[in-house]
Simulated assay, not measured.
Amino acid sequence: MATPKFMTGTVSFHAELKKRIKAYFNETGKSETGGPALYTKAIVLTTAFVLLYTHLVFFTPGIVWALLECVVLGCVVSGIGFNIMHDGAHGTFSKRPWLNTLAAFSLNILGGSHFMWNMKHNVIHHAYTNVDGVDDDIDIQPWMRMSSTQPKYKMHKYQHLYFWFLYSMLYILWIFVLDYQKYFKKRIGEMPLKKMTTADHLIFWGFKVLNLGLFIALPIWQVGFTGWLVGFLVFSLLAGFVLSIVFQLAHTVEHTHFPMPDEATGRLQDEWAVHQLKTTANFAPHNKVINWFVGGLNFQVEHHLFPKISHIHYPAISRIIKQTCREFDVPYIEYPRMRHAVASHVSFLKQMGRGQKAA
């Protein structure tokens, strides 16, 4: 598929939205980046990770206590991804570029590749959300059908039942399979991968080796193969599921759209900002615990419209965005509680599995 183009109009919803958000930051004098509030969260999560890892690997607690710690470690790893890596990768963790780079590289330490993530998430997903054939996030084929434009197989009838297992496999597949696929194929889906420099190659392989040492070799040496395997599966399967479900609730629910470009013109029917609002959903906006843990990704609408603004500002700017949407008659999709979004996601999977069309 050729890269789609977005419609343009004389009255731009996006231009008005940007003007109002800029006015908010000018009037309040706040920085668009994270600052002390995010630094504190990063210290808490990083400290928790170091303490849990050290205790599990070097002090080998009893089996019940170790399993509990592995569960917490899975949550902490997810939290680091949501809060530290994600903001750092978007350049919103700090005003200081080196701190953003450091925060983004937390992904490399945990086994992923910041280079691949930047291409897959920042460049492709944020530009062409829910566009089948371009957005790699909705390409889980052949195992799942995430859009009506994708082929339907008999097993998809049950995808609303087995998705729990596939989502849990995300972290393991990410660090052991998917990054390598992108690296050797030199593309993400149908999109060519940005040319890697010598430094990019060295960083990719250097951190992959480091991760194998930290998460496989050293733990096996310290606690034995069986102890490592059980602990690794507990923490990685939980982390995979948590990471998956949070991102899926943002785009693959009943009310989000899956637009395709016009075959003749290659254009999508909406301007970019309207496209983002039609393809993205919020959940649990008033739940402070969820908001803290998922790094504001429950305010996915705000994140997609303003990826260069830190998540700590999303609750405040959401009011401005809602008001602007009402004035321009643009949809704003939001589920008041997380369980409502989960139920909608399951219902969406049922619809796709039965061959029904998405919006």
Rank of each mutant, 00 (worst) to 15 (best):
L170G: 00
N211S: 13
N122S: 09
L233G: 00
S148G: 12
F225E: 04
V230F: 11
L161D: 00
K185Q: 11
V242K: 02
S106D: 07
Y180P: 00
W143Y: 12
F163T: 00
S236C: 02
M169R: 01
V209L: 15
Q141S: 07
V134F: 09
L178S: 06
G213K: 06
M191L: 10
K120S: 12
L166W: 10
L218F: 09
L249C: 03
I140D: 13
N118M: 12
Y180S: 04
H114C: 08
F235C: 10
W228P: 02
W164N: 02
F225C: 02
A199N: 09
L107G: 07
D132W: 13
S113Y: 05
W221K: 06
M155N: 07
W205G: 00
M146A: 04
I220S: 03
I138P: 10
F215L: 13
H126N: 06
K208L: 08
H201V: 02
Y183A: 02
K194I: 12
D139T: 08
G112V: 03
T129K: 07
S148E: 15
I140L: 15
I124K: 09
V134E: 15
S168T: 01
L166C: 02
L214T: 07
Y153H: 13
G213H: 09
I175H: 07
A199E: 14
A199C: 04
H201A: 03
V177R: 08
D132C: 00
F207Y: 15
I216S: 05
Q150D: 07
S148R: 06
I124G: 04
L243Y: 04
T226C: 01
I172W: 07
F165E: 03
I220F: 08
F207L: 10
G231Y: 05
N108A: 04
Q222F: 02
I220W: 10
F235E: 13
S106F: 15
